Computed example of a mutant assay.
Amino acid sequence: MVNTHPPQPHPDDIVQIIKRDHKPLKVLLAILKNENVPYLEKREAFQQLSPLLEAHNVPEQEIWYHCMKREHAYTVEISEGELEHRLAEQICKDMKTTTSERSFLSKAKVLAEMIEHHIKVEERDLLPDFESATTLDERVELGLIYLERQQQIESLQTTERHRFPLSSLDNMQG
């Protein structure tokens, strides 16, 4: 009897990891874009988004993008992705110190729209193409490296939070 069920996704496949990382980002981005969400809720969503975004972008760029540039013909798409990562990092940095509600909300909307576009291109084009051009073993190997790097980023973030608790930053927010 022929098995007609597609193979189960492997949890350490870099394609699956990236898609998993995108899920909470999408939820928080929707909050940032929603005109009916109050300012303080958007601030809270951003405080959750920023470390998640860093813990996703750094390994994505260092591991997956590096592989894509080296092994596959996606130089334009990867250059765009790297630029979007740099812009997102800069906007996040600006948002952390923005005291004006209007300025924060403008930046939040631009950030959300840019990241949503970035995720859409990855999920629609780059991830499926990468998946069909590589073996599961290759993707799992990359996934394990990605997860290790992500763990390093998250550990650094935890250390930074203990050195500079959010409550000490609240007074700077205005």
Rank of each mutant, 00 (worst) to 15 (best):
Q151C: 12
H22T: 00
R124P: 00
H22N: 08
A45T: 01
Q8M: 07
L83D: 14
E160Q: 08
A112K: 05
S100E: 10
P128Q: 09
E44H: 12
Y39P: 08
E77Y: 03
E35L: 06
D12F: 06
V27A: 06
R161H: 13
Q8R: 11
Q48R: 06
P51N: 03
C92A: 13
Y65L: 06
H10V: 07
D170M: 07
Y39M: 08
A30R: 07
E62F: 02
A133V: 05
Q48F: 05
A73E: 15
V27P: 02
L147W: 06
L32C: 06
R70N: 13
L147R: 15
L166C: 05
E113R: 05
Y39C: 08
L169T: 11
T98I: 12
H118M: 05
I91N: 07
F164N: 12
H22F: 00
P59W: 00
N36C: 04
V58K: 02
E138L: 14
D170N: 11
E44N: 11
G143L: 08
M114Y: 00
E113Y: 02
T158Q: 14
S79R: 13
N3Y: 03
L111R: 02
V76Y: 14
V27C: 03
H162T: 13
Y146H: 11
P59I: 03
S155G: 04
R139Y: 11
I63T: 12
L111T: 01
T75Q: 15
Q47R: 12
G81Q: 03
E54A: 05
